[in-house]
Design a protein around this nucleic acid. Structure first.
Lengths: 204, 204
DNA sequence: CTCCGGTGAACGATCGTTCGTTCACTATAC
DNA sequence: GTATAGTGAACGAACGATCGTTCACCGGAG
């Protein structure tokens, strides 16, 4: 084998980096294989040594990023693992922000997939959302409910709502460039969202 | 003029319909002007009689749909205008669903704009979200607060959270094809979200 | 005749992909 | 230790197809 296995892996990585950079900015059909090869510092032909075609290159990138995203060491996964009381909602908010920031590219590519390819990725990721939340939090929430720390009324849905809003907020901010959606700083927005979800809009 | 002004308007409309149909399914760069012309039953040259180029055709469609969306007669706008108590959250949820259903194409095109063109649309639409909510609901919420019907703690944010979650839910369902995000029927999901936002996750 | 919506052939550019070829490297033979 | 056959990454010219856009022309209404 001519170049070392390491060198080959690095070439493949450079191709992926260039593809991610361009796909996230111009979309799938708006990016040419030539552009990717040039930015990666690789010949056009060599790109096809590493990937059968453009579609498969995109799929390979998505697979790679999905594996990173679903790993148990993301900020959000760790926040879930440590979730023990309603006072941890703020921590969940901060973890959501970190996760959105870290996976901005992946999130953008999910939108690319939805808009230009069939969008099967998003169905896999969000289709089983409720089930995953129950698995991750179910027992812990049952305990909190038994101790009277959380209302009996579907706390899993409550935490889904929390992460949805947090993700929405930081998605707007970091992915779409919409700043201060709530007219507040990130910390204040997290605090307000957490308080409303904890105590409700009705006076106590 | 050979064809009547009406006939010309109908041609223009057929072009827009075909363009929307294709842009929402294949994206901007994934759709060719030839495809649009063929589906509209119009010659390729005639398409360029109605629009300077492909980009301007897309912009014209977005302008048209934005005008419809921001009109005061959408289900959501009407629900806001009628919002008088926290018991109206369910109505807001139903109105959100109707709005997402009616503007599925527009929403998809906003994502197209974000992914393939600069995405300026979304900044205009969401940038002033808080301000618009305050304008639409501010006084009414102040009244509810004065009567002790709503907590003093930023009810505008509460209603933003409500519509964000409702929109997110029905966006997943109607735009992205993710069914039963909360593992419940639409009506039950609306009821659960409304209850949690009204009463909070903490037991009363 | 003039005007103008409508037509489709034609333009040059660029697309995704293929192909023959080169060449640095390893494993084996002697 | 040296020579050599084999391997596969890397290259870039070339392919046919398709892209967005233009333009000379048509035909019927005023």
């Amino acid at each position: 084998m001519p170049p070392s296995a390491q060198a080959v892996a690095r070439t493949r990585e450079r191709i992926h980096e260039a593809a991610i950079h361009l796909f996230t900015r111009q979309g799938f059909h708006g990016t040419s294989t030539r552009e990717i090869a040039t930015e990666a510092g690789v010949s056009l032909g060599n790109l096809y040594n590493h990937h059968k075609n453009k579609t498969e290159l995109f799929a390979a990138i998505m697979e790679e990023l999905e594996a990173e995203y679903t790993a148990p060491d993301t900020p959000l996964a760790k926040a879930f693992a440590a979730f023990a009381s309603l006072d941890d909602l703020e921590t969940l908010g901060a973890a959501s922000q970190k996760t959105v920031k870290r996976f901005t590219d992946y999130i953008r590519l999910i939108y690319v997939d939805v808009v230009e390819l069939g969008g099967e990725h998003i169905k896999r990721l969000f289709g089983g959302m409720r089930g995953r939340y129950e698995e991750l939090l179910g027992e812990r929430l049952d305990g909190m409910r038994a101790r009277g720390e959380v209302s009996a009324d579907d706390p899993v849905a409550g935490l889904m709502i929390a992460t949805i809003v947090f993700f929405y907020l930081f998605n707007m901010e970091h992915v779409f460039g919409v700043k201060r959606l709530f007219g507040r700083s990130d910390r204040e927005a997290i605090a307000t969202i957490s308080r409303i979800l904890r105590d409700g809009m009705r006076p106590r």
